[in-house]
């Protein structure tokens, strides 16, 4: 068996530190994902009306989010708000805000697309039955839209978890940074540690994202 430098994981608190880093990454991305889903649904419904003010706002917002690398947004939210407004957001708060802005815009666009893809006559059919507008969304449009956007939103959330590695730029130490620290601290003693540590991270990411995709698969099967 090749030397993967796995022994560094058992030195001191290294393994617990990695788990702690994973928890930071998951905490940021899952809180942001939760906010994104709720905000995205409201935004997406509002924007699904053609030529509405909200659809223009969403398009501009999305444009900005797409042009700007997340790294830039993190810098703006963390350092920029201090310079401009004197706010002192913690790195983690800034990260959650940026990821929520990003997620809500993308989620909003997914919801808008999914809602718009439901044929108009489905809505009319529900309206003709005397359902109120809210009931039409609650029972007819959203359930159908959610089925269409489920795979895409799972994809978005896993992308979010992966992108959390950028938050190290605003001082938040998450799993990849911890990994880097462990590898660097042991550069001489265990030069191969990088393999073992990254392999471990890979497994941790996989185990963290697995329940998500499993749940999604189960739902999709249930709906088929």
């Amino acid at each position: 068996m090749p030397d993967l430098g796995l022994e560094v994981l058992w030195r001191g608190k290294n393994f617990v530190r990695l788990l702690g880093g994973l928890w930071v990454a998951l905490r940021i991305s899952l809180i942001a994902a939760g906010i994104s889903v709720v905000a995205g649904i409201l935004l997406g419904i509002a924007a699904s009306r053609k030529r509405s003010v909200s659809s223009v706002i969403l398009r501009i917002w999305l444009g900005i989010i797409h042009i700007m690398p997340q790294m830039v947004l993190l810098f703006l939210m963390y350092f920029g708000t201090t310079r401009a407004f004197g706010w002192n957001l913690s790195g983690e708060t800034a990260a959650i805000i940026v990821f929520s802005l990003w997620g809500a815009a993308e989620m909003g666009d997914l919801v808008r697309g999914a809602v718009s893809s439901i044929p108009v006559i489905q809505r009319e059919s529900a309206e003709a039955l005397g359902l109120k507008p809210f009931q039409v969304y609650r029972w007819i449009i959203l359930p159908q839209a959610v089925r269409r956007l489920l795979p895409l939103s799972i994809n978005l959330i896993t992308r979010m978890i992966k992108t959390t590695s950028l938050v190290t730029l605003i001082g938040v130490v998450e799993i990849l940074k911890v990994a880097q620290q462990i590898i660097e601290a042991n550069r001489k003693a265990s030069p191969n540690a990088a393999f073992g540590v990254f392999l471990t991270i890979f497994v941790m990411y996989y185990l963290a994202c697995r329940p998500l995709s499993l749940a999604a698969k189960k739902l999709e099967k249930h709906w088929r």
Partner: peptide, 13 residues
Amino acid sequence: VGMVFQNYELFPH
């Protein structure tokens, strides 16, 4: 008012 459409418009889900 009960309405029946040309393409049924049942709710697929």
